[in-house]
């Protein structure tokens, strides 16, 4: 026993090194999964506070960009509601909808930290469970989809960015409604890839890609980007389509978190479907 102690003591540096390295690697492989990343992440009170304070200084430098984005968004919204006052709608078939709640509620939040250069990028927002934000909610901004909420604390939340190689969303081609999976390859922050579009579909550069609305996270029809190149790869029966995003993640400042009121119902039915197929 004495010899063992002496052995450990003499090699304590190596033992400590191995121990710390094992702890780190256990962290790396167990806590970087988005369902499990509840422990020491950037939405914690401490890191959230540091980011928030710093952001209060730096946001002044981005004011002109933010103003321009808000003005564009205003113009777009005004176009949407641009119904002359003289025209009056009399709801007919939609009468049952009048008192029912809206399906989507938008909570506006500010980005306090963001990254685009890792393989798994995360964003921290300055709102949390106090403001009604829950995990799994979608996050969008005027130019498209930003990501999905993974963790919340009372006043901050962390969002898995669309620029995360472990995540993808369902998207479709606006012109013909063919849908596929939109994912990021970890390289260019302006470019994502649409897969699962079969060869018989006509796809042209310049086509607009929008969200499909198949998941409970995002409403249908949010513009994402335009097709840049279409490639046929040998050995596959699907196109490789590069999509240029409308959204520049480098200049992200204000976003909206989407609360889907019928989320629970949709999830229930999706779950039933997958149970029927024997999946899960």
């Amino acid at each position: 026993m004495r010899d063992l102690y002496r052995f450990i003591l003499r090699n304590h540096v190596i033992f400590l090194f191995v121990l710390l390295e094992i702890i780190s690697l256990v962290f790396v492989f167990n806590y970087n999964n988005y369902q499990k990343s509840r422990f020491l992440n950037s939405s914690s009170q401490f890191t959230g506070n540091v980011y928030n304070r710093y952001n209060r200084v730096t946001e002044y430098f981005r004011l002109s960009t933010v103003n321009r984005q808000l003005a564009e968004e205003n113009a777009r919204l005004r176009k949407l509601v641009g119904i002359p006052k003289t025209v009056r709608f009399i709801p007919d078939t939609l009468r049952g909808y009048q008192n029912s709640e809206f399906q989507y509620i938008y909570i506006s939040a500010k980005v306090v930290s963001n990254s685009v250069n890792r393989l798994q990028n995360y964003i921290t927002l300055n709102k949390g469970s106090k403001d009604g934000i829950k995990p799994e909610m979608g996050v969008i901004c005027a130019d498209g989809v930003v990501g999905m909420v993974t963790n919340v604390t009372p006043s901050y939340s962390s969002v898995m960015s669309l620029l995360n190689v472990r995540w993808n969303i369902s998207a479709k081609i606006a012109r013909n409604n063919y849908f596929g999976t939109l994912s990021w390859d970890g390289k260019d922050s302006r470019k994502v890839y649409l897969s699962d579009i079969p060869f018989h579909v006509n796809v042209f550069p310049g086509d607009t890609i929008i969200t499909s609305g198949f998941s409970a996270t995002f409403p249908e029809g949010i513009p994402l980007g335009t097709i840049e190149t279409v490639d046929k790869e040998g050995g596959s029966s699907f196109y490789t389509i590069a999509v240029k995003l409308f959204l520049d993640f480098n200049a992200l400042s204000w976003v909206e978190v989407i609360e889907n009121n019928r989320n629970k119902e949709l999830e229930l039915i999706l779950k039933r479907n997958s149970n029927d197929e024997g999946l899960d």
Binding site: F17, L40, S42, S44, S113, Q120, Y122
Partner: peptide, 19 residues
């Protein structure tokens, strides 16, 4: 390493490299 990880949502990554 773990402090850097805490801020950048990469738990363990920088810690392992720094150690």
């Amino acid at each position: 390493g773990i402090t850097i990880d805490w801020f950048s949502n990469t738990l363990g990554l920088h810690a392992a490299s720094a150690v």
